[in-house]
Amino acid sequence: MDVIRLPDRLASRLPGRLGERSERPVVSMVRLHGVITATTGPVPRSVINSVAVEKTLERAFAPERLAAVALLVNSPGGSPTQSALVADRIRGLAAEKGVPVLAFCEDVAASGGYWLACAADEIFAHPTSLVGSIGVISQGFGLDGLIERFGVQRRLYTAGTSKSRLDPFLPEKQEDVEWLRDLQDQLHEMFQQWVVSRRGDRLHEGAELFTGEVWTGARAVELGLVDGLGTARPVLGERFPDAELVPVEGRKPLLARLGLAPPAAATGLISTDAVLGVTEAAEIRALWARYGL
Rank of each mutant, 00 (worst) to 15 (best):
W215V: 13
M190T: 03
L180G: 08
E205H: 07
R202K: 15
E208M: 04
L187I: 12
D185V: 04
V214C: 04
L183M: 09
R198D: 00
E178I: 10
K173M: 11
D176I: 08
F210R: 08
E172Q: 15
L180R: 15
Q186F: 00
E178W: 03
R202G: 06
R199I: 10
E205P: 07
W215A: 02
R198S: 13
R202M: 05
F210H: 07
G200K: 12
L187T: 04
W215F: 13
V214Q: 00
Q193H: 11
W179G: 01
R202I: 06
E205N: 05
Q186M: 08
L203V: 07
Q192I: 13
D176E: 15
H188Q: 14
H204P: 00
E178K: 06
F210Y: 15
E208I: 03
E172V: 15
L203H: 05
Q174N: 07
L209T: 09
L187D: 01
Q186E: 14
G200I: 03
L209F: 06
R202C: 02
Q192H: 08
G212W: 05
R199H: 09
D185Y: 11
E172M: 13
E189D: 13
E213N: 08
G206P: 06
E213S: 08
Q192P: 00
D182V: 04
W179K: 02
A207N: 09
S197C: 09
E213I: 00
R181L: 15
V214G: 02
L187W: 03
Q193Y: 03
W215Q: 05
E178R: 11
Q186S: 08
S197P: 06
Q192E: 13
S197H: 11
G200P: 01
L180W: 07
W194I: 01
M190F: 00
D182S: 11
Q193W: 03
E189Q: 12
R199D: 09
L183E: 10
E208Y: 02
V177E: 10
D176T: 06
G217S: 03
E178Y: 03
A207R: 11
V214K: 02
E178G: 00
L209G: 09
A207P: 11
V196W: 08
Q174G: 14
R199G: 04
Q192S: 06
V195H: 07
L187P: 00
R181F: 13
L203I: 06
E172D: 11
D176M: 06
H188F: 09
G212I: 07
Q186I: 08
A218L: 10
Q193P: 00
V195S: 01
R199A: 13
W215E: 04
G212M: 05
R202D: 00
R181M: 11
H188P: 03
E205G: 12
Q193D: 15
Q174M: 11
L203G: 02
G212T: 07
K173G: 05
D176H: 14
E205F: 02
